[in-house]
């Protein structure tokens, strides 16, 4: 039996890496740097949602994570297109 505090530790470690990515988003000298940080945050948040959904026994969070993954992908593509300067 795995204690639920294990998942609490996992979630706080994930939060620490999100915090480092946020520092990159704030500091980042150019716009692409900030977007790279944002993309990393998105992936970590998806995994965090999956783990949170299991540890609180609410599977609905995992469905939200799937939709969030697809939407964040589309937003990354749009921002990349905008940085390129092309027409949509």
């Amino acid at each position: 039996m795995i204690e639920s505090t294990t998942f609490l530790v996992v979630l706080s470690a994930l939060f620490l890496s999100v915090a480092m990515a946020i520092i990159r988003v704030i500091k980042g000298p150019t716009a692409p740097d900030r977007i790279v940080g944002l993309d990393t945050i998105n992936t970590i948040v998806i995994v965090g949602m999956v783990i949170f959904g299991y540890s609180t026994n609410s599977v609905i969070y995992i469905d939200v994570a799937i939709v969030y993954a697809l939407l964040s992908f589309i937003s990354t593509l749009f921002i990349a297109k905008y940085l390129e300067g092309g027409e949509f």
Binding site: I46, A69, L77, I79, A80
Partner: peptide, 27 residues
């Protein structure tokens, strides 16, 4: 459902990275 989320991550992550790298080089 977790397998679905993992599949979405595996499919979208490298493609997003490619788009960002291309955008960075072109800008």
């Amino acid at each position: 459902h977790t397998a679905g989320a993992l599949f979405a991550i595996l499919l979208t992550n490298p493609t997003g990275a490619h788009a960002l790298a291309r955008a960075a080089h072109r800008s």
